[in-house]
């Protein structure tokens, strides 16, 4: 495996290897090198089983991390190829010519993350979201709770109480008022520091 990793580094500008287990390593390569790298791994290094393609939305960095996981039955180990692509107009080279199975993964990524794979068969055919107008739902900024609240309705008559608040109301309402007022006072008087929220 080490030789293969070294090869990926030298041939495809691979970054540091992130060794999770003896038989699982993740390597980051530039997005432009992914198809070549996967082709190399498939044909030269024996990683002929495409386990899965997945995406992770790193919204804070403004990128999607695509993960291609390959397995070698000869070596009994896995290499995960990671590549960052921009979140805006996300697009990636298709690998459906390398693995027939890839087209389904790419279809799903297109639908759920909005990552385009030009040329991939049926890539624009939605699996389930016919007539969907919102942002792709697996993106980090899609708020499932908000969506659910807008789409469905809660059971009527349910209400809950926070134990601490409830106890304050029940047993020491006036002291709670004092506490809050004093707290606001003290907080307001303190010097503002750079990292003060």
């Amino acid at each position: 495996m080490k030789d293969t990793i070294d090869k990926i580094r030298s041939m495809f500008d691979g970054g540091d290897a992130d060794e999770k287990r003896e038989d699982l390593v993740f390597v980051t390569v530039p997005a432009t090198q992914v198809v070549d790298c996967l082709g190399y791994l498939r044909d030269r290094a024996g990683y002929r089983h495409l386990v899965m393609i997945s995406a992770v939305d790193y919204i804070e960095r403004g990128v999607f991390q695509l993960t291609y996981l390959l397995h070698s039955y000869e070596k009994q180990n896995d290499i995960g190829i990671r590549a960052d692509i921009g979140r805006d107009d996300a697009s990636m080279d298709s690998i459906h010519r390398l693995w027939a199975a890839a087209q389904v993964y790419q279809r799903e990524l297109r639908e759920m993350f909005g990552i385009d794979f030009p040329g991939s068969p049926r890539v624009d055919e939605p699996m389930l979201l016919e007539g969907w107008e919102g942002i792709p739902p697996m993106r980090r900024d899609f708020d499932t709770k908000k969506y659910s609240e807008e789409t469905f309705f809660p059971r009527e008559g349910r209400k809950t109480a926070d134990p601490a608040t409830h106890m304050a109301e029940k047993n020491y309402a006036s002291e709670e008022q004092v506490k809050r007022s004093v707290k606001d006072l003290v907080r307001g008087r303190r010097k503002r520091k750079g990292n003060d929220g």
Binding site: K159, A161, P163
Partner: peptide
């Protein structure tokens, strides 16, 4: 949900609320 229940008093170490299950 945590709900008030008749007969359960709010006291030291006991919020007086009890779980209600949907």
């Amino acid at each position: 949900d945590m709900v008030e229940l008749p007969g359960q008093e709010t006291k030291r170490g006991d919020s007086g609320l009890r779980p209600s299950i949907d």
